[in-house]
Design a protein around this nucleic acid. Sequence first.
DNA 1: CAATAAACGAGACGGTACGTCGAGTCTTCCT
DNA 2: AGGAAGACTCGACGTACCGTCTCGTTTATTG
Lengths: 220, 220, 220, 220
Amino acid sequence: MVSTAVSAVVPNRRPRIEGDREAEILDAAVRVPADVGYDRLTMDMVASEARAGKATLYRRWQNKAALVVDAVSRAKGIPSPDMPSTGTLRGDLLASWCGREGWSSTLPMSVMGGLMTALHNDEELGAAFREIFSGPRQALARRVFEDVRDRGEIADGVDLDLVMSLLPAVCVHHEFVLNRALDDVFVERVIDAVVLPACHAEQSTAQAGVEPARTVRTAK
Amino acid sequence: MVSTAVSAVVPNRRPRIEGDREAEILDAAVRVPADVGYDRLTMDMVASEARAGKATLYRRWQNKAALVVDAVSRAKGIPSPDMPSTGTLRGDLLASWCGREGWSSTLPMSVMGGLMTALHNDEELGAAFREIFSGPRQALARRVFEDVRDRGEIADGVDLDLVMSLLPAVCVHHEFVLNRALDDVFVERVIDAVVLPACHAEQSTAQAGVEPARTVRTAK
Amino acid sequence: MVSTAVSAVVPNRRPRIEGDREAEILDAAVRVPADVGYDRLTMDMVASEARAGKATLYRRWQNKAALVVDAVSRAKGIPSPDMPSTGTLRGDLLASWCGREGWSSTLPMSVMGGLMTALHNDEELGAAFREIFSGPRQALARRVFEDVRDRGEIADGVDLDLVMSLLPAVCVHHEFVLNRALDDVFVERVIDAVVLPACHAEQSTAQAGVEPARTVRTAK
Amino acid sequence: MVSTAVSAVVPNRRPRIEGDREAEILDAAVRVPADVGYDRLTMDMVASEARAGKATLYRRWQNKAALVVDAVSRAKGIPSPDMPSTGTLRGDLLASWCGREGWSSTLPMSVMGGLMTALHNDEELGAAFREIFSGPRQALARRVFEDVRDRGEIADGVDLDLVMSLLPAVCVHHEFVLNRALDDVFVERVIDAVVLPACHAEQSTAQAGVEPARTVRTAK
DNA sequence: CAATAAACGAGACGGTACGTCGAGTCTTCCT
DNA sequence: AGGAAGACTCGACGTACCGTCTCGTTTATTG
């Protein structure tokens, strides 16, 4: 479990100024690896950058990965939930994904890449990451998409979880698998060519009549 | 550059059975980490599993990541290029993604997660990975999609590269970011709800008249 | 300088029961390490054993070694100066060294071994130790030996300081260097075979005529 | 167990030049702490002085103490067993204890003080120390004393082990407990005033008739 | 009796060294 | 000659303990 969660749940005996030092350390942790990347980042670097003892680091975070997850989450900030609607799904997506505040500006994208290993090896850490980092972002996205559906812009029967994940999925793939730079132009194209069509598609099982999937699957 | 390329281009001094030992080592490398994941895999493990000296490993591969990339590529195998067309895009996709031979069966998905770090930190390695692993798969997919387009099943103006990447993108995101298991049912749903709609969408810039993106972007 | 001196000299602002708490802590310090030895003893152990804060410990003693020196001194107790004479040197030595009250019963001999390091590295601490621990014992011994000499049992010209130190020296060597258990039988043998002969020896420089040390020393 | 013993007993699979690197490291270990003392000496210091990895140190020695014991033993050297007899016990003792080659020159006396802790806490290490360091010295001394006894210079019934230990005992006590510098003059005085009288004393149980120890011990 | 200020318990903190582990290199021996 | 075996350097990891510091909380003396 990551510290943020812990300090929120467990009422520490001595509240202290509460999270004071923690914040400084996380800042330092983000400051340091901006240029080095996750696994060239050492705990000693963070410690000396924050003028902290390593013991202090390990008292609050179980290990390096946990600290970095926390630091990255803080650095990216939780997207402001009071994002004003632009009236259309297209507008909302562009607003939240493009520009200085958008996903593209996720400064430590390289750091996230480095975390993949740890996130997959340590189930608990992965859970913390999804809770702290992905969670709020998904919640925000879901709210946006629900609003839009309620306004009738999304066809009935469309799997909200799926369409919601399209933009992140394509962007992550673009960045990590294809190793291509992400820019606003690309994001816009994806929205127009993928997300909106998926939202407007008739019920996704409509084509079942054309050709049953059974055939293929039984073939294997 | 990774060994496969090297050993293909450079005529090894000692002809030997040619690549014989290499294959054994790669097999060992896949055998070992099936359960441990990339960074719990050590070179010593591979060496002793293959009954080889570490020096031998480093003689053929520049480092651990290069070896694992090679091993994973071999293990997954290059998809057979002579996949018969089923007559529809939907059928072709289901055929190549589902079942025992499909993406879902990519055994060392956990290993790939571990490689992310290395792929991002080492540009050369990333290139090798994309060439050896992604390359053939993308080429195959491209051939399929081009065939389909030539048969008229994909609207004009659709960005082939983009729609081609949709299925992998969503699957990778599902597995790595959401940490959910991939199965044939999910793949089928994605095909129906995302890929096909994107293929049938009218020219992706058509909606520009409805509402110019400019407006929104300037708004932020 | 060690606390005992300090607290005696400086009139504490708040008189309190005066030294009350100090005694409790020293007792705790002796209680704890009975089985662990000096450097497996931690200040936290002492603190929690005494239900005291570490700050309290460091307010009274400069460091761990100072505390342990004090604790050991107290534990051993200062030998009662009113030891009755038995009429012979042999009797006095046996009386003060053997039995339950004797040196052999110096419970924290293992602790003393652990102090060696600190005593040698920290000159000030060593001085305090010699003053608090060795001092009173030497003074007592000196009084005994002087009495005995006055009674004529020790030859003139014998170096009192030297013969005084023989028994402690041999015992310490036995225990620490040879690592053999000390018991009353051994102490008695040393008295008879070493201490008494040295006391009865004619003037120790008498043999200088026999063979001058010069010869050898110049030889080097 | 300490490395010397190990490498002597266990026939290493690969003999190597045998002890090559080990010797270099021990030299470095002695070079470093000459001025700092045992516990200000760190493994990293030794490692970097010897241009060795810490892992190498820990592969050969179980811990810091074991390494230092080995290093000290080597540095002091095993006393040459072919010391020529001077014809008298007094001469032999002076020859072996005084001068540049003597005990006084035991350079790392401060280091030894630091080892006391470890020697007492770690039984195995203490045993190794006594075997490697004390052993040869005691053996040499025993040979000298036996020769002397055979020549008739030591009275019958004298406990050789005891008189043998007198000089070391008094010197160690002088140095460690009294914290006084050891010099040749002091050594000579001890020989004359303590060792020789003990050697010439009549059978050590002779005094039993004078006054039985029982009396005193029952008195307590 | 209430206010005040020192001393206190608790324990977080900076720092330093420990002992472990893995990557990648280098050496020795064997076949 | 080339490879297996494995020792080697390097450097990060996570732990332990020291001695300092900062909290709130007694506690005893004062007003």
